[in-house]
Design a protein around this nucleic acid. Sequence first.
DNA 1: GGCGAATTCAGGGAAACCCCTGAGTGTTCC
DNA 2: GGAACACTCAGGGGTTTCCCTGAATTCGCC
Lengths: 213, 213
Amino acid sequence: MSFQPSVVLVDDHDLVRAGVRAELGDAVRVIGEAADVVEAVDAIEDRTPDVVLLDVHLPSGTGADVIKAVLARGIETKFLALSVSDAPEDVISVIRAGARGYVTKSIKGDELVAAVIRVAEGDAVFSPRLAGFVIDAFSATIPEPTDPELDLLSPREQEVMRLLARGYAYKEIARRLTISIKTVETHASSVLRKLQLSSRYELSNWATRHRIV
Amino acid sequence: MSFQPSVVLVDDHDLVRAGVRAELGDAVRVIGEAADVVEAVDAIEDRTPDVVLLDVHLPSGTGADVIKAVLARGIETKFLALSVSDAPEDVISVIRAGARGYVTKSIKGDELVAAVIRVAEGDAVFSPRLAGFVIDAFSATIPEPTDPELDLLSPREQEVMRLLARGYAYKEIARRLTISIKTVETHASSVLRKLQLSSRYELSNWATRHRIV
DNA sequence: GGCGAATTCAGGGAAACCCCTGAGTGTTCC
DNA sequence: GGAACACTCAGGGGTTTCCCTGAATTCGCC
């Protein structure tokens, strides 16, 4: 392995960056660091590293935001997500955005070095426990897009939807919005039809998945 | 500050431990490390450090488990929780268990050193954003005990309760348990009465809060 | 044997949920 | 002025939820 890739480190925790830097040693060149989305995009644009080591959760956004912004500017670099989380939604979103790998912070230092080098060379790298998720995600196609479906609802319908998802009775919703029960029924019906759901309980789950409640 | 406290480091991530070790420098003596609950308890019992730097989430349990086990053995030491999470429930549980402080991993190295020393000297240390949580938690007293109320339900009732909380219709529950709808109604009624809830939606929320679904 | 509990089921009824058609008002945009 | 849309409301009907009373069976326990 004659190759010493250059790396930009993105993580909002000083301690984690210090740890990663220490563990990477001189197997790679750390040519930049950033703690939030804007800093990260600037640093990556400025330095154009071989690999960006990227936390999925940042104070001002997500790792996926960084990837999208960088790719939108046409910069060629590779992303390796490095996170404490192995939650499927985190993995999926960052991979969808364009990351070439995803490893958890429980990785050993030498394994991390190996992962960075493999990504720099174009491989995809996943922690063993995460490989299953990635495959499942792309075969099962569970998109959870959040936004576009919500736009189907008119403002008033969204209002009713929120109260509905929280389990309020029609009567109670009518009282809070000072409209008649019949109007609530109409809105509720539209909401369920537009979201292709069949009961308020499904709606409740839908809203939870999409972090609306 | 003539005092150089001894510290045991508990975190399941090698990278994080390396980072903490690097940032602590020689202001404190790191006399032990552990990556899970059992290791941690053994190490703490063996070395009896002034301070234990403790991650709240471990593979085999929680930081609170470590604290309880150590305190149960009558060992005198102080705990400083160190976590990426600032979720109220994490903070509350570990403080309830007996931690003397809670800082997030976004803390700077020198601030961490200062926090460790203050805890060693008997102070309580909290990240500014977390202080509010701790005060609220003890005044508001939102315990969510999970267990005792569940024991009120007979086995069959618990079974029905779980399906009910997931939103299955009586008809569907009857089919799954191969009993009549009327029997499901009876159980559902008992469940709601015993838990003092008034609808399946409240039950659904209750079950979510108590992590049953 | 009796007693309590858990489990099963039925009938009946009030309320809530969900859907359908239809309709009046207001706004915006062409 | 008319089309499109959002918001409002009504009547009517089928389904589901939730509660009530009452009752049969089984099991373990004193």
